[in-house]
Each structure stands twice: as structure tokens, then as C-alpha cells.
Amino acid sequence: MKAAGGEFNLARVVNDLLTVGCASFAVEDELRLASQKALATGRRTLSRTDSKEQLVTWSGNGMWSGYQPLPEGDPQHIDMVERYEMPAAALKAALNPSGPALAPEGELHAALRAAHDRSIDLIGRLIATAAATRGHAEDKTRSLWLEDHESTTVVNYYPPLLLDPIAMKAHRDFGGLTIIFFEPGKAGALDIHDGNDWRAIPPDACACAIVGELLAGWLGCTPPLHRVRSTAVPRTSLVVFHQPAFDRTVRFKDGSLVNAGQHIAARQAEYNMLDGRYR
């Protein structure tokens, strides 16, 4: 898991994903510009009360979608993060020229959509290359992971905290492949567990890819445990969660069959229960 300076190296990133489940890397120009615009728009929206009041709030039921406010409670036990999350279908619908373009939600949707579309291109390249390395046929890889896939795009706002609790508790991602984009110089609050200890992502990293449980089971690698530490400096991250279509069945290397939708729904419910925000 190397620092993310210099050129994007596809082979090195895929090797890191297959060996340790995580890779930090440089971001190519179009994606870098789109992700940085989404980060800036997300920070501006989620750091201002008047902007947040105009956002559609998630009801607390079903798949995560919309604005999720900073929860109340003991920061030692709950995730200290505000987030705005939209499924890909909702992002596309929000950009319908005949529909309303409400600011700031319309501005945020547009920025997230641009970053999402370019991220999906990168995710497709990473999954296809990793699958070929493991001997999976190209057509089956495309059918399982890249056609009719589900994905969500999230902007996380971490407010400054004088203490240093965990802002997002240790967890493994549920689905396919996750891409996280960082503000310049602020990647170091993300920790990856290497099996023995916590290791921080290099602070100068532009982005990080993390293998989720479904993809890891299919590829025969390990989905890494990771967490986010709080700091005295506010931070924003942009996350694209890629998942296969919910009706797909994933065959793990050990021969077990896992329905994607059932797995993701169960793991989300488990995470909500652990966090306790919406009980």
C-alpha cells in the first residue's frame, strides 16, 4: 500500500488490492478535477446550516439515501460524521433537464454525478484487471460486476473534535470495490488494519481503493478492516461504493453462494444496529 504520488499505475494498484485488499494511488486528471469539485461542493454544503436545511433527509429506513445529520450521543460509540449519499439511479434522475434544479441540492447532485461516472470507469478497469489475474472469464466478469451494477456516491463531512475518538468505527465494506477521494494532505486519518496493527493511509494520498466482502470472496482475497480517526481539523471525503446488481449471486472461492442484495441489506442493518443512530 504505497503513497499516491506520480503516475497512476494500474498493475501496482491491482497487485495491492489482491494482496492486502487496499491501495492508495495517484488520480488521473479528469477524475482528479471531478472528485475535487465534488469534495469542495460537499464541504460547502454540509458545513453550512442553511444549505443542509434544503437537503432531503434519509428516513432511517431502507438503503441509505439523502442527508444523514451528525448523530447525537457519545462520540466514543457512534460515528461522528455527517453524510449525503445518493444511489446512481437517483443521481441520474436528479440531472433530468426537465426536472427541478434546486440549489444547493442540485449543485451537489451534479458534482457527485460527474465524480461518480468517472469513478465507475476506473472501478471497471480495476475489477476487470483483477479478475483476469485470477483467471475469471471476461464475459462473466462483465455480467456479474459491471452490467446493471448498483453503486452509491457519498460525501462525508467530519467536524473538528478536540478529543481523538474514532469518527467512523472499524468495519469492512460490504460489496464490490470502494473508491475514496481525499482533500489534499488529509488522507492520513484513514487507518487500515494489516492483521497486526493499524496503519494510516499516507497523508499525501489522492485516493484509495478498498475491496469489499463480496468482491473479496469472489477473488479469494481479504476485505480489509478500516476506520477513520477524528482530528481537530474538519475534513471531507468522497466515497463511491460499487456493488453488483442486487439479484446477482456471487460464488466465493470456497464454493459458497451469496446473494448480493441479501448480503448488503443484512450488513447495512447490522451496521445501523451497532451504531444505534436510527433505532
Rank of each mutant, 00 (worst) to 15 (best):
I264F: 07
V20D: 01
P223H: 08
L46S: 02
Y84A: 04
I192E: 03
I78F: 03
T153M: 06
D173A: 14
I201S: 13
R267Q: 13
N96S: 11
A128T: 14
L225Y: 05
R32W: 07
L70K: 08
L214R: 03
Q268S: 11
G188S: 12
A167L: 08
V211H: 00
H116C: 03
V20C: 03
L102G: 00
I120L: 14
L163P: 03
N196E: 15
T57P: 05
L219H: 02
R229L: 09
D50N: 13
W198I: 14
P75E: 07
V27K: 03
L95Y: 02
D204C: 07
W218S: 07
K169H: 10
K140V: 12
S143V: 05
S151H: 01
L102P: 03
P71N: 12
A207N: 06
Y157R: 12
A110T: 04
M1Q: 10
N272G: 02
L144I: 01
A94G: 14
G99P: 00
I166Y: 09
N9G: 08
P223W: 05
L46W: 01
T231E: 12
V154K: 14
C206A: 15
P160R: 11
R32D: 13
H263V: 02
Y271N: 14
G99N: 06
I264T: 10
K140I: 10
R172Y: 00
S256K: 14
H149S: 14
V14P: 01
E30G: 08
I192D: 02
W145K: 07
A38K: 04
P202M: 09
E85A: 05
T222R: 15
G188L: 08
W64L: 15
D74P: 10
L122I: 13
P87M: 07
L238H: 04
G185C: 08
I264C: 11
V20M: 03
Y157Q: 11
A103M: 00
T178P: 05
V240P: 06
G99E: 06
N196W: 06
G6N: 06
G106Y: 00
K2M: 09
L144S: 01
